[in-house]
Amino acid sequence: MDEYTWPAVPGVPATDAVRQSWLPLRRCLWGPHAGEAIGRQWFGVFIRIDGVPDAVGLAEVGRTRHAMELPVIGTEVAGTIIWHADHNHQVKIKLDEWDRPE
């Protein structure tokens, strides 16, 4: 499997499951969160958010310092939800490691 495709493997939530997790996720949107990197694209990494079944967020490359590496699939990461959109159930995350000085 190419690392830049949406992972259709056991343990990765399906689109409908992600949609259904929206209301529980909205209850705990702001503040720090942890999760696992489950997919990579040229524009960022998808993260399964701990504590909310099937919730997925996106950490965008544009939020990194120049030349930062995206987390490898399966890596545990931590960050803060910085944006959400109700109409399409999207959550954007800024990873803590992207705030550290170089």
Rank of each mutant, 00 (worst) to 15 (best):
D54R: 11
M1I: 10
L23A: 15
E76D: 05
G11D: 08
C28S: 13
V52M: 08
G79K: 03
M1N: 09
D50S: 14
Y4W: 14
C28T: 13
V56E: 06
R19C: 09
L70S: 08
L25K: 01
P13W: 07
Q41I: 02
G44A: 11
A34L: 03
D2N: 14
W98T: 01
A67Y: 00
K92A: 14
V9K: 15
A17P: 08
W42A: 07
P101Q: 01
W22N: 02
R26S: 00
P7G: 14
D86M: 03
T64G: 04
P7Q: 14
A59H: 00
G57W: 04
A37H: 10
E36Y: 01
D50K: 10
E69Q: 09
A85V: 07
R48N: 12
G79H: 03
P24Q: 11
E69S: 14
V61K: 11
V45M: 06
P32Q: 12
G62Y: 06
E60F: 11
I81P: 05
A37N: 10
W98I: 02
D86H: 01
A78P: 00
P71H: 01
V12E: 05
M68D: 03
E3C: 09
L29E: 04
D54F: 04
G79P: 05
D96F: 00
E36H: 08
C28M: 10
W22R: 11
G39C: 14
M68Y: 05
P32N: 09
H33I: 13
V77L: 02
Q41L: 10
V61I: 06
L58T: 07
N88A: 05
V12P: 00
A37Y: 08
A8F: 11
R40D: 07
P7V: 14
T64P: 05
R65K: 08
M68R: 04
D96W: 00
Q90D: 03
D54K: 05
T15I: 11
W83G: 13
C28N: 11
V61H: 06
R27M: 02
P10D: 14
P7K: 14
V12S: 07
V52L: 04
L95Y: 00
V72T: 10
L95W: 01
M1G: 12
C28R: 13
A37C: 15
E76I: 04
V18S: 12
G79M: 05
D54M: 04
